[in-house]
Amino acid sequence: MCIVLEDKTMEIIDNVGNTPDKLLEVLIAVQESSEENYISEEQLVSVSKGLGVTLSKAYGVATFYSMLSLKQRGKYVIQLCNSAPCYVNKAFEIIRAFEENLGIKVGEVTDDGLFSLEFVSCIGACHMAPAVKINDEVFGNLDRFKVKSILEEIIRRER
């Protein structure tokens, strides 16, 4: 296993706390420290060792909470709200716009690793539905044109 990664994980555990009840908090912190917004298998093993919980327990928690991912994601995780209030404001058109602009389907990552698309339940931005969340930022009142310009803006920033 990569020593640096293990050290980094242990450092996170030291910061957050090393009791079993901190499992979720630790996994969140591990994921937040990842460029690709996910928890690798190695890290999951280190977390289970560091907190003294079984690997199956760590896996169980990591797969139960849908904001955690064991699969590599984009640097920008685009979460498309598919709950009913966004549906009423025609979220399905926005979902299609993201898929078309990025050339990927929901659940996939772009080839350059910059974006990934996933569904998310209501993010509490229903007053500006249809809404999406890109990493920690919420974007609302979307239409096809706004979708395009948001993506272009990120791509420009990344160049």
Binding site: T19, P20, D21, K22, L23, L24, E25, L27, I28, V53, G60, V61, F64, Y65, S66, M67, L68, V120, S121
Partner: peptide
Amino acid sequence: SGYGAYICGEETALIESIEGNPG
């Protein structure tokens, strides 16, 4: 912190979650 599980709003699932378990 919760992390993407609506059921954790149910009070006993929430308690499970604070204890470090799936909610």
